[in-house]
């Protein structure tokens, strides 16, 4: 089998293979391996735990471990951006989301859906294929971590503002669009729920705030009896909250 690196630098690869050994890992590799095991374990707990808030807190461990991996790869700016944005804001946003959707504190038995075993099969097959391909392709490739750091703030800033200015500015427009989109999404629901009280007194069955009565036109039935007081109180409840 021919590797892409063999085609480009045959001499460099054999030199690197002569210098490094598979059975004599360096200190950086051992640290990377240990932090990687912790990160992978935290990620596994994140996707398997039945306590929703614990999943968010284990996600903090996984993302923080990834920040340490970036530091070990000498990409320090990315590491601190990871700490600031992921650990600092994304997880807090996720926790806000969990609490605003009234996620149960404690074990919730229906955290996993019924297709768990199919998902496990797909994930294990994908992991086996990806690991096999990656190990086979980069068996003789070493990253040179000596010398000046590849991702210090000076280097990253210089390349970002010399070569990547246009995508950077386009990204700021995208962030603005996302901000406006989030505001529109949360305003539209309020406008919809403030409209129905005018005409939903007569026909509560067709109100959009009735859960499931549209999805199951036949089966919505006995549920619409139970949902009727909810439809009466729901818009008024939201108006009172505002």
């Amino acid at each position: 089998m021919t590797h892409p690196a063999d085609i480009t630098h045959p001499a460099a690869v054999t030199l690197a293979a002569a210098q490094h050994g598979f059975l004599s890992p360096t200190g950086v590799e051992i640290a990377f391996l240990l932090v990687g095991l912790a990160t992978f374990g935290a990620a596994l707990v994140t996707v398997t735990t039945r306590q929703l808030v614990h999943a968010a807190l284990w996600l903090v461990v996984a993302l923080g471990g990834l920040a340490v991996e970036y530091l070990l790869l000498t990409a320090e700016f990315i590491a601190w951006v990871q700490v600031l944005i992921y650990v600092g804001s994304v997880v807090v946003l996720l926790l806000f989301g969990l609490m605003l959707t009234r996620a149960p504190i404690g074990r919730s038995p229906d955290a996993d859906s019924g297709n768990r075993w199919a998902a496990l099969t797909v994930a294990v097959a994908a992991a086996a294929a990806l690991v096999w391909v990656v190990v086979d392709a980069f068996r003789t490739t070493w990253v040179d971590l000596d010398g000046p750091a590849a991702g210090s703030t000076a280097v990253t800033g210089a390349s970002l503002f010399q070569n990547w200015v246009l995508p950077f500015e386009a990204l700021s427009v995208l962030l603005l669009a996302a901000l406006v989109g989030a505001i529109v999404l949360s305003r539209k629901a309020k406008a919809e729920s403030s409209l129905p009280p005018v005409n939903s007194r007569a026909a509560t069955g067709g109100s959009p705030s009735v859960p499931d009565s549209r999805n199951h036109p036949i089966g919505g039935t006995a549920r619409s009896h139970a949902a009727k007081p909810v439809a009466g109180t729901h818009p008024a409840d939201q108006e009172g909250a505002r």
Partner: peptide, 30 residues
Amino acid sequence: MHLAYPAVLAALLFCTGLYGVLARRNAILV
């Protein structure tokens, strides 16, 4: 550092996330 270490870790993390997307029921866990 051997390049296989970060590449294998990335592959394993990706498949962990893939399992979570397929198996979880709560939208925030997805």
